[in-house]
């Protein structure tokens, strides 16, 4: 919960800007993988999906034209160390994020170490606009609550972490999280995309906390 002293906002108008609006979101080192040549040694293809139930309504995200890339996208922060995300997150953590198109399977290159999903969210409001000093700042992110552990074993080249389905209530609080195992279909899709040169191993994300 935040407290804002508006006398510092000055008279007249201020520019509403966030990290997003200032273009400060760093690019992620966890990139989508389209073919095996993009997967270096020491990297593993992580395959999974993020779902939200009920899904986002078409007009639910308010995104300016510069921020359309965040539409229907879950931002998923990972780290090889377990941390309390709310107390220790920094801008640098955004360089370790999976950009997961909502409801679509993602294939990303991740360092070949067990990791944690520390925090996930959806960008709900991102636009540059002029507001009055008394205007209510609308926080831009809706959290998807849950911390998960993903195991890896030596020799893994591709792992399937499952579909993480977040159930939300009308307040956009996470009521329940399911990790759905659709490994059979994921394997078929993986072979179609990457061939049979490497195998996809199941290593479902394990919920370990809120």
């Amino acid at each position: 919960m935040t407290r804002i002293c508006s006398r510092y906002a000055g008279l007249g108008i201020v520019l509403a800007c966030s990290l997003l609006a200032m273009g400060c979101v760093p690019s992620s080192s966890i990139k989508p993988v389209e073919n095996l040549t993009q997967v270096g040694t020491g990297s593993v293809i992580v395959v999974g999906k993020i779902e939200l139930e009920p899904g986002l309504a078409p007009d639910e995200q308010v995104l300016g034209s510069n921020f359309e890339e965040f539409r229907d996208l879950a931002l998923v922060i990972t780290d090889t160390e377990l941390r309390t995300p709310n107390e220790t997150m920094s801008l640098g953590d955004l360089t370790r994020r999976i950009n997961a198109p909502m409801g679509q399977t993602f294939y990303v290159g991740h360092e070949a170490q067990p990791f944690y999903i520390l925090k996930s969210w959806v960008v709900m409001n991102a636009e540059i606009k002029v507001v009055s000093p008394s205007a209510t700042p609308v926080p831009g992110n809706a959290p998807l609550s849950g911390i998960f552990k993903v195991e890896m074993t030596p020799g893994d080249r591709a792992i399937y972490i499952g579909t993480i389905r977040y159930h939300r209530d009308p307040f956009f609080s996470t009521e329940k999280v399911e990790v759905i195992d659709d490994f059979a279909q994921a394997t078929i899709d993986f072979k179609q995309k990457f061939g049979t040169q490497i195998a996809l191993r199941k290593s479902l994300a394990q919920p370990i906390g809120q």
Partner: peptide, 17 residues
């Protein structure tokens, strides 16, 4: 102290829900 606004997070249930 001037004018202050105290805000709850917009997304997520708070204690007053």
């Amino acid at each position: 102290m001037g004018e202050h606004q105290y805000s709850f997070p917009t997304y997520g249930r708070n204690a007053t829900a």
